[in-house]
Design a protein around this nucleic acid. Structure first.
Lengths: 330, 330
DNA sequence: CTGAAAGCGCTTACAG
DNA sequence: CTGAAAGCGCTTACAG
């Protein structure tokens, strides 16, 4: 059943059926009702791909995620999806599993016009490539970003939040503070490391290179790095960890080493995922407004898709230090 | 830049360019290379929507998930995605957030031919509606299912696995065993409850109605139901909980009540999500082969899309009881 | 092995 | 307010 069949049954033209569906105000009440009757009777559904082809828009956007199983990204994704659905857009999911090749391959969906725009929650591609892409297609970065890239970006200020997290430990009296980073090729890792350094230096604390260890985002990597740190001749009394999942690894390692958290080792995580409130001890962390980041990113993308001018390109969302049991000595 | 432009530059017809792209073996080597040179030079990318429209297939499938933020479903989703990508399909994500209205609305993507098929990880719609849909479109159920529905389905045997979980507690010497269910309108909740009952009855243990409480899939609901159970005049010594997330709520409630797990209260969860290995104590649980379920479901969907006959409709994957600290008294 | 032509099902500028 | 007609960019059955 196609539009022209409906048209015949209703004794009108296909154009009129199309208008009833897309611009009903342009059709007389009488005609409109006649057509709608037929549509309902035969359960006609328009062929969306034909419409996409004709209008040259798919009403689909692509979200590229580094890890769909992550509690953090799935919340951001949900924020994106909410705004997308509200505006009649569907979401294609691109899970890269932290593989830059896969990140790259998803760009084809844009080049082949299969999607109207793209939100990148991972930005590990070449800066020039991204810039070129953004000049041709609606593109928004969220969570991750690229230094000096003139593309709409939504994120928190990772440097200042990392500084805040580290200063919290300093204020509690710690001076031997270690930091377990994420993969250092990710800008988020570098920025949080920068914030850690700033806090240490501005408080006249030494940054011992042995106190900085690189993890790979996994619970296990942080567990292992923590064991390393704890076996140093002068082990740290506090560790600021790249994210909450890894902070759980750190705490587990401390417990398995017979240490009490926070009494023997204070731990700060990052992201404020659900588990950080459930884990024992609860984890002090930096809250990122995950849902709001997703919503904002999608709103920006809609602006770009509509071709509306965008004066501001960087949107810095508010983070918040949430103090819990993993740093607070009872 | 469209195909006919490439054709002009290469001095061939659009048909030939199309063949170079889709059926290169039908084109002479010489012509093929000439055309590929032009394609590379002008960076031509075919307009996928035009192809979709012409071939009447989108190479997109829809996955409807009850909760994208769940550690369980995101693993299943990843399995689906792997097989989809391997076969040139993209995945549209439909997150219902456990809302049956939203589940219903995603069906439009199928009716409007915007996707080639659908995998439902939640099946709360009317049985007849699903049956009718499946007769017209490629449709696979996974994880959740509908009793007596003749549609390809991938899942574990929830009744027998729940029985196995309960019997584990019985073998440990427990007789006062409670069960916290999921929302009882979900078949998974009813089947796991059935397995619990079977184990109790076949071991001559009384099933006290007060020992069966309904949760809503959340950590908090299970926390609260557990407090209720523990305040009974004869509290249970063991609880089988609908899933791992809820089992964490149960353990937390026990701890907050001054009880030790497993010494005062043994707890069994379900799903074997990552957190069940990290939480303290580690949680005894039923492992579902999440990734394999996703892969199998997508493989079945590909069969349906290709119109291949399918003799078997029910695929029961292997689950496994994994015994950990939450039930094993040291 | 290659090309001319039809057609997939809509939407919209134009004319009346 | 309505209709006739063009056209979105491909693919493929057919002819040669």
């Amino acid at each position: 059943m196609k539009m022209s069949d409906v048209a015949k049954l209703a004794n009108v033209s296909a154009a009129t059926v199309s208008r009833v569906l897309s611009q009903p105000e342009k059709v007389s009440k009488e005609t409109r009702e006649k057509v709608l009757d037929v549509i309902n009777k035969v359960k006609y559904k328009p062929h969306i791909v034909a419409r996409q082809f004709r209008t040259q828009e798919t009403k689909i956007i692509l979200v590229v995620v580094p890890d769909i199983t992550s509690a953090f990204f799935s919340k951001v994704l949900r924020g994106i999806e909410h705004i997308a659905l509200e505006n009649g857009y569907q979401v294609i999911l691109g899970d890269t599993e932290n593989d830059i090749e896969r990140e790259n391959s998803y760009i084809n969906l844009l080049l082949q016009k299969q999607v109207d725009g793209m939100v990148l929650l991972t930005a590990r591609l070449d800066k020039n490539k991204l810039e070129e892409l953004a000049s041709e297609f609606p593109l928004v970065l969220a969570c991750e970003y690229v230094d000096g890239l003139n593309v709409p970006t939504v994120s928190i200020d990772n440097v200042s939040s990392a500084r805040k997290a580290t200063e919290h430990l300093i204020q509690l009296g710690h001076s031997k503070i270690a930091h377990i980073t994420g993969p250092i090729n990710i800008i988020l890792s570098r920025d949080r490391l920068k914030g850690y350094r700033q806090a240490m230096i501005s408080n006249d604390l030494e940054v011992d290179p042995a106190y900085i260890q690189e993890g790979d985002l996994s619970f296990e990597s942080s567990y292992n790095e923590t064991l390393k740190l704890l076996s140093l001749s002068t082990p740290p009394t506090a560790i600021f960890v790249f994210n909450d999942e890894m902070a759980m690894g750190t705490i587990k390692a401390a417990k398995d080493s017979g240490l009490s958290v926070p009494n023997d080792l204070a731990v700060v995580g990052f992201d404020n995922i659900k588990m950080s409130t459930v884990f024992e001890p609860n984890i002090t962390t930096i809250d990122q407004p995950k849902f709001a980041i997703g919503k904002k990113a999608m709103e920006l993308l809609l602006h770009l898709i509509k071709g509306e001018p965008m004066k501001k390109k960087k949107f810095v969302m508010k983070d918040e230090l949430i103090i819990r049991e993993s740093t607070l000595i009872k």
